[in-house]
Design a binder for these strands. Structure first.
Lengths: 242, 242
DNA sequence: CAGCCCCTTCGATCCGAGTCGAAACTTCGT
DNA sequence: ACGAAGTTTCGACTCGGATCGAAGGGGCTG
């Protein structure tokens, strides 16, 4: 009888309003790699004037999607939490692919599909293959909506020079699946996943290029992939060069 | 060097544009229960003029989010697929709760939290509890990003008068987890989940009220919950009445 | 067959939101 | 301390899109 719209569930309009603007989406995608960027850089990425970028950053701050380092004098904006990056992955999972006109755009997309950074962990074919490898070798086991380290899993990781992240220092989950738009699968999220990327980066297995979300697997990294039981990655390191 | 925004990933703006309008979201939420509704009814739910509703329906059709029965003379719109309902659940999972001002709105929200229909299967506390019960009793087992029926699971279901859905008649998954915004957990999606709701509805265990997404568990249904090993549901049937 | 109801299309209106430039403010380097 | 570069705020403009009413077209019913 009440003719108004009285839907009682979550408010999707807030999400939609923030995502309906190309410049804001460009900003969020620029930050999705986990890097903290300055307003001027974000304005360039979004192809808008600095004042416009500032306007958008204020909106995203209000929504709690991004934060900026308070202590530093120069503001650097970044995603508010790893969960925001996972939300973006969720949304990308269901979004249609953007039309790609240029050759550069095509190459960039292929690089993203292959291996990219989702806030602080690996995604793309690399991330999905890693997750499948850990499950196949019974390092992790699916347990409800999260992954559990098996009894032998801890030793398995230590055998590969991984130091396990200590549990419970904050509320972040140890290991959870995160939808991946690349291959319609899941990649590993959570503290373990972040530790793996940190470990691989420190040892030079993967390199994070400047100004891009994509990851480059080095030749040493490809040897490491074999040690981890990852075989699905398509490109050889020489083929990944420009 | 290229100053334009050359992001190569999926286009989130399309999703955002569709979701940025309250009337369109109201229409989608009205259809999320799985019911096929006529334009006039949707216009009432969205609190807009019929012409405006028609405008929105055309946009949602173009996007492929909804379809209408072609054969019938009277058009009834419904979601294009179960996957669309899951997308909405995903989004609701990450969206902030809508502000509730009225008592009716509060009651409606509680009803949705308790038990609701997500296209053709159960969601809310009921759906989450069902999924956990099936996992706990080893009827289903998590296997990557989907659920697998165990060897004993088929008999377990048949013992409860369930006829299993035949696999592979279409491409729809047998059983998959689907994020549930109610309790930050997962409920069961896929063909098995739809079969369970059909079975329960036919036997009068649950009732789908007209003009609402919420489900009502009957007293016979509460007995059935015990048989399925579901104990978490909070309200007794008498307490659920208005 | 006629009348009624419902839905869609079209035209016009209006509001909100994104955009930029100018100006003020802050911070860093010289 | 002063100049330069970067960032934010403010004001004004513009434009896309949501909205409704009127008109046109079917379909069902009496």
């Amino acid at each position: 009888m009440t003719s108004g719209r009285d839907y009682a569930g979550p408010d999707l309009v807030i999400i939609g309003s923030l995502l309906s603007d190309p410049a804001r989406v460009a900003i969020m995608m620029a930050l999705a790699g986990g890097e903290a960027l300055r307003p001027g850089e974000l304005a360039k990425r979004a192809a808008v004037a600095p004042s416009t970028a500032s306007f958008h950053l204020a909106k995203l701050m209000d929504a709690g999607w991004i934060v900026h380092d308070q202590q530093a004098a120069i503001r650097r904006y970044k995603l508010a939490s790893p969960e925001v990056a996972e939300i973006l992955e969720h949304l990308a999972y269901v979004a249609p692919p953007a039309p790609v006109s240029s050759l550069r755009g095509h190459q960039a997309r292929e690089a993203l599909r292959e291996a990219r950074c989702c806030y602080d962990h690996m995604a793309g074919t690399l991330g999905v293959s890693l997750t499948q490898a850990l499950l196949r070798q019974d390092v992790l086991r699916a347990c409800g909506d999260h992954f559990q380290l098996t009894a032998d899993g801890g030793q398995w990781l230590r055998n590969r020079a991984m130091s396990l992240p200590e549990p419970g220092v904050d509320k972040r989950a140890f290991a959870r699946p995160c939808l991946d738009w690349t291959e319609r699968g899941c990649h590993l999220a959570g503290r373990l996943s972040a530790a793996i990327l940190t470990h691989w980066t420190e040892h030079g297995y993967v390199i994070r290029p400047e100004k891009a979300r994509s990851l480059r697997v080095t030749s040493a990294g490809h040897e490491q992939l074999i040690a981890w039981g990852i075989t699905k990655l398509s490109h050889e390191p020489t083929a990944a060069g420009s």
